[in-house]
Amino acid sequence: MITWDDFEKIDLRVGTILEVNDFPKAKKPAYQITVDFGELGIKRSSAQITVLYSKDELIGKQVVAVVNFPPRQIANFFSECLIMGVYTDKKDVVLIQPERKVDNGWKIG
């Protein structure tokens, strides 16, 4: 069990995907994704979502991400946020999104 104080340390924000590129150096199939978080700026992430999403359909999609992790190096790429998703029974990832469009950078709570 975590405490409320533990939960409040996690900074979950909404952002809009601006750019998606293949990530051939990743161990598992993944994209390199650039996300606009409004006043928090632009952050990049590596996401293993290639099974259910094409690069083209991701552009302009709003996502929920943890934005206060330290950068994590994956091959030659630094991931600056963790885009959130739900694992299916086949371990594919379905993205978590706001039910309607909101401003980039708005906090999840």
Rank of each mutant, 00 (worst) to 15 (best):
E99S: 08
L58H: 07
Y87K: 15
Y53D: 07
S79L: 09
Q32G: 03
E39M: 04
I74Q: 07
G15T: 05
K101F: 05
K27Q: 12
G109K: 12
L18Y: 07
L12M: 13
K27M: 11
V51P: 01
D92H: 11
Q97N: 08
E80T: 01
F7E: 03
E8L: 11
G85R: 04
D5E: 15
D5T: 10
L12N: 05
I83N: 03
E57G: 05
L52F: 06
M1P: 12
M84C: 15
P98H: 07
I33K: 00
P71Q: 11
P70S: 03
D56E: 15
K61A: 08
K9V: 02
G15N: 04
K43H: 12
Q62P: 08
V67Q: 00
T16G: 07
D22A: 14
S45W: 02
V67F: 02
K9S: 04
D56N: 10
A26W: 06
Y87N: 14
E19T: 11
I10Q: 04
D6I: 05
W4K: 12
P70N: 14
K9A: 03
Q73D: 09
W4T: 11
E99R: 02
F78R: 12
D56P: 09
Q62R: 00
F37C: 10
V51Y: 06
A26L: 02
T34R: 06
L58D: 06
K61M: 15
K91W: 07
K9E: 03
R72S: 05
L18W: 00
V20I: 08
Y31G: 09
G41S: 04
D11M: 08
D11S: 14
R100F: 15
W106H: 08
M84I: 04
Y87G: 00
T88N: 09
Q62Y: 05
F23A: 12
E80F: 03
E8Y: 06
D11A: 09
R13D: 05
S79T: 09
V66D: 05
K25H: 07
A65S: 11
D5Y: 06
F78P: 00
T88P: 07
E80V: 00
R44S: 12
W4V: 14
A26F: 00
F69P: 00
S45I: 03
S54K: 13
M1K: 07
D56K: 14
T3C: 01
E8P: 00
I49A: 09
V66I: 14
S45H: 02
G60S: 08
P24V: 01
K107A: 13
V64T: 08
L95M: 08
R72P: 01
Q97M: 12
W4G: 06
D36S: 06
I49L: 10
V94P: 01
F23Y: 09
R13G: 07
P98T: 01
M1R: 10
K91T: 10
D5I: 05
G85E: 01
Y87W: 07
D89C: 02
F7I: 13
I49H: 10
E99D: 12
V51W: 00
K91Y: 10
S79E: 10
D89V: 07
F78Y: 14
K90R: 11
R100C: 10
F77K: 11
G41Y: 03
Q73R: 15
W4R: 09
T34E: 14
P24M: 06
V66R: 08
L82I: 13
I83E: 02
K90P: 01
R100T: 13
D92M: 02
K27T: 13
A47P: 11
